[in-house]
Structures are given as structure tokens and as C-alpha cells.
Design a protein around this nucleic acid. Structure first.
Ligand SMILES: [Mn+2]
Ligand SMILES: [Mn+2]
Ligand SMILES: [Mn+2]
Ligand SMILES: [Mn+2]
Lengths: 219, 219
DNA sequence: AATTATTTTTAGGTAAATCTAAATAATTTA
DNA sequence: TAAATTATTTAGATTTACCTAAAAATAATT
């Protein structure tokens, strides 16, 4: 099954939009891929013909078994390359996404598996997202949205809700990253902002939007 | 100047075919790129329009200043990635060419320069070919074709004439690689085969074709 | 020099991935 | 439930990188 770069990008986008179960809509895909709904319809037909998708006109789409397998392979490559860029080449975690977006399409399976070994079989990428192993299996950790955590509970940031440059810039400014330990001091009803305390630092206040973009685990 | 993968492959092919001076023919390019002469003509027009080439219909083509710069950047990426694959990921030197053929098209300049630094600014790739630095400058060593070397002179293999799997397989079998020290014992007129002695090993005979594919330097 | 062979270009077409505009289906609102 | 709105698909074009077949230019042979 040889896929073009475009086909791979569609498969990956469906994978990411298709949380839990439920179908992904044409418009969602068009927005996520910065393309037009008409183009999406064309591609969905093609990928369905290749037995990668389950698609009914007007009813949205979901990945089939083979599509899921392909998606995991692309995600694996994306996250391994991100890890490589940060761990070996000293990129910042906020700079790696676009480069990985290209590297994920390099096709050699041998390359990916050797890279994995060279990196020491990492389980999470620099954004805290789990890296599928060569069988497509990835670690799952109980993670919570920071906005839902009770005050006083000590937690550690383990992933972020998006890879947007804006979010990562803000986190860098506030000195928050994957692995940062913190606890909620109090929540403000008015704007749902949250006062937090990062280990050994003065407390700071973060917006509702930022708290919703942070995922944490218990320490 | 943003080039497509196809455009980059043409630029690189012209660079490699354009030894010293003299123009590259349409047919040469078609053979080298596994495409048809008619397709080459189309692409030459496009790249000329982009001011990368100097091209006169029926007179062949050569790289212009900007084309040369682009070519060196692609060659730099190709050879750095080959070095990475062999030095860090333990690929064999005969396995890296096809993967590098894909990796060379990753566009991030920052990635290439960081990779270069991470690898310790290597001067030669695993096949003995020089790696251009970030300004496009590459080391030149006096190298000779083995077929032209006089008997008794001790030389060291420093590059190979092609990256073909067949050649590399044969070299692996004969235990000859970059860095191998050897000397010519005698040459046979009949078939131009050459008897050589590799340090501490029984002498072996290699064919004219193989001797022509080996480039060496004085030690 | 004339003929033949080779090389290169032109003409016209295809497949992939996109687009805009128009038509149709599904959903929401009044 | 009928009308209005929104989502999706269809129809018809465009661009890129190829292709084959035919024409034209160049090179090699008699
Ligand atoms: Mn991508
Ligand atoms: Mn990531
Ligand atoms: Mn290439
Ligand atoms: Mn090489």
C-alpha cells in the first residue's frame, strides 16, 4: 500500500479528528487541511476505493482497519522525528512540528525502526503525546484537563492540546513545559481563570483557554 | 526560491552530469532520471524560465549561478543524511542511497545546519564524496582512477564511481571500502584486469570495470 | 553533397490534486 | 411543516509532471 503525501495527510487528519467514535465531516477535514470541501469529497472517494476508509456520502467518514494502521505508522514517524529533533539536534519543542510534518512522509520502514532504537524507544514525544511502537501500540496514561483538577492536587504537565505556535510561545513565556510540576491554588468564577503555583516559583494566573490546553497527570 | 521534488531532482541530475564544463544533453538527462526526452524538454523550459539554467534548444543545458547554488544545497543534504544513516543509525554504506534520495528534499535549512553540527561537520560522505559546507564549498582531494595508478604505489580508496547496488555489493564481497589501503601488483593486458594486494591479505584480481569504478588517493 | 540515422522538440493527452460555481441533500428555524 | 440555512456533492477548470506519436533539427554515413 503506497500512499502519496496528500493521501497520508488526509489519513492522519481523519485519525486526529476522529476522537473515540463518530464520523468526521467533510467541512472539518477541509478546515483542518486548509483545503476546500469539494477537494475533500474527491479524496474521500479515492481513499474509500483503496479500502482505507468507511465513507457514506453526506454521512461523514471514519478510518477502516487498514486506514488506522497507516495512520498509526504516520503518527509514529511524526513523533519519533520530533523527539529526534529536540533530543539530538537541540530544537525547541515549539519549533519541531513543521519539520516533522515533512519528515513523517519518508517511507523507509527500516529507517524508522533504526531511528526508534537509536533514540532508545521513547514512549512520548516532546509535546507529551504517546509514540506508537512498530506494531502501532502506544502507551496510555491517565491524563486530565488542568481545568478539571481540584485545588491542592499536585500534578505534572504531560501534554498540550494543540501544536499551534501561539500556544507554544505562551507556554515558553510562562516557563511551562512537559514535565512541569504544579498545583492549582484557586479558580476564579468570573472568567474561569486559574491561579497556579509552579514548584519554587511565585504563583501565576493563567486564562481559561490556557488551562484547557494543558493536560496533566497525578504525580 | 521554492522548488518541487521533481525540479530538485532535475537540478541535481544536471549538476552530476555536467562534469567540468560542457552542456548536458536532453537524452542524457532522460536516461539519468528514468523519464522521456519530451518530459525533459518541458522541464528544461520551466527551469530556464525560473532562471536556474542556461538552455538553448538543441544545444543542451548547463546550470546557471542560482541553479548551481541550489544543486550544492541538495547535494549537501543528500550526503549529510547518508553520513547520518551510516554513522548514527548503523546502516551499511550500500543501503543509504535510496533513503537519502528522499531525505535530501526536506526543506528546513535549520535542520540541515543542526544536523551538520551534530555529526561534527563531516567532510566526506560514506562513499568518499565531499560534503559541501553551508556556503556550498567542498573539500577537494587529488584523486586518481585506480586503473591509472602505477604498480607498487600504495593508495587508499577514497570514493566510488557510482552508487549502484551492484557495485556496492561486489565491493562488500571483496572487502573493499572507503579507507582500504592497497597497491597494484600487476596489470593484465588481455582483459585489463588488475591484480591488487590489500594490506595483510592474499592478492586478488579485479576486473577492468571494477578498477575504473574505484578512486584512490596517495597515502 | 545527399541520404540516413539520431536527437530533440512540438502537439496533443492523461492522472493527481487542487479550485470555483452551481446543484442537491440535510438540518435548523420560524 | 414549510422555508431558510448550512453542509456536501457534482460539474467543469487549472496546474504539474508525466506520456506517445509525429515533426523538425542536427549529426553521421555513404
Ligand atoms: Mn505531513
Ligand atoms: Mn508532537
Ligand atoms: Mn531525490
Ligand atoms: Mn553518497
Amino acid at each position: 500500500m503506497n500512499l502519496t503525501v496528500s493521501e497520508e495527510n488526509y489519513i492522519k487528519a481523519i485519525f486526529h479528528l476522529q476522537q473515540a467514535e463518530g464520523n468526521v465531516s467533510t467541512n472539518q477535514l477541509a478546515a483542518s487541511l486548509h483545503t476546500k470541501p469539494a477537494s475533500v469529497t474527491d479524496m474521500l472517494k479515492k481513499l474509500t476505493h483503496k479500502s482505507l476508509l468507511e465513507y457514506e456520502p453526506y454521512q461523514g467518514v471514519r478510518l477502516g482497519k487498514e486506514g488506522k494502521k497507516q495512520a498509526l505508522s504516520i503518527v509514529r514517524k511524526h513523533r519519533l522525528w520530533e523527539f529526534f529533533l529536540v533530543d539530538k539536534l537541540q530544537f525547541g519543542w515549539d519549533e519541531v512540528h513543521d519539520v516533522a510534518e515533512e519528515l513523517e512522509h519518508i517511507s523507509s520502514k527500516k529507517l524508522v525502526d533504526k531511528l526508534d532504537a537509536y533514540l532508545g524507544f521513547p514512549k512520548f514525544d516532546p509535546h507529551g503525546d504517546p509514540i506508537p511502537d512498530s506494531n502501532g501500540i502506544m502507551a496510555t496514561i491517565r491524563q486530565f484537563n488542568l481545568i478539571d483538577v481540584k485545588p491542592k492536587v499536585v500534578v505534572e504537565v504531560c501534554s498540550v492540546g494543540s501544536q499551534s505556535a501561539e500556544l507554544l510561545e505562551l507556554l515558553r513565556h510562562k516557563n511551562i513545559g512537559i514535565g512541569t510540576e504544579l498545583q492549582i491554588i484557586r479558580k476564579f468564577e468570573f472568567d474561569h481563570s486559574v491561579e497556579i503555583s509552579v514548584k519554587n516559583k511565585p504563583t501565576i494566573t493563567i486564562s481559561q483557554q490556557l488551562a484547557q490546553a494543558l493536560f496533566v497527570k497525578l504525580v
